[in-house]
Simulated assay, not measured.
Amino acid sequence: MTQSHRMFENPPALPHDIVTEAVERGLGDTTHEPSAAVALVGIALYDDDRAFIEHCCIEVGMRAESGSQLLGLAGLCLGHAARRFGQLSERAVALAEALATRSELDPADVDGRALDGLDDIRSYLHRGEAE
């Protein structure tokens, strides 16, 4: 019996134009969601431009169709940004809260990663630091 071990590596932050293109493709065609997901995670974990991360997550959160894997991921990525920067815009926090509420009401609409993201926001966002 042969055992196979999967290796997971966090994706790198890609240049903003490539991320924007990947997100747009993912929002327009579900077959491109995996590359959009990789682009979002990469910037959430490693990009130093919080405003760009928030912009991408807000675009996804506002435009992705119900059931898209990108919705829960947008909430999770906002949680990563809160952990890294200690602050988020009020609009980003409101979106994360809305996505988490949708997830609680119907996990087929928005998956549970939105709840994890909101937990991170609540843990890492400094009081009064929503802009």
Rank of each mutant, 00 (worst) to 15 (best):
P12M: 02
P107S: 13
I18T: 07
A22W: 03
R50S: 14
S103P: 08
D116K: 07
A39M: 03
V19T: 13
V41H: 03
L125F: 04
V60K: 10
V110A: 11
E54V: 00
L99A: 06
V19L: 09
V19S: 12
L99T: 04
D47E: 11
D47Y: 11
D119K: 12
I58G: 05
R113L: 13
A64K: 02
G117P: 04
N10T: 04
H32R: 15
L88F: 08
G75F: 11
T2Q: 13
G61A: 12
L40I: 00
A82F: 06
G72N: 15
E129A: 08
E65L: 05
S123K: 13
E97D: 12
D109W: 13
D106P: 01
G26H: 10
L73I: 03
D119Y: 10
D116L: 05
A81K: 06
E90D: 12
L76I: 01
M62A: 14
R91M: 10
L99C: 06
R102W: 05
A98Y: 12
G26W: 09
N10V: 00
A100K: 07
L45E: 09
A100C: 02
A130L: 03
R91E: 14
S68C: 14
S89H: 06
H16S: 08
A39L: 02
F85R: 03
H16N: 09
R113A: 11
L73K: 12
T31H: 15
S4N: 07
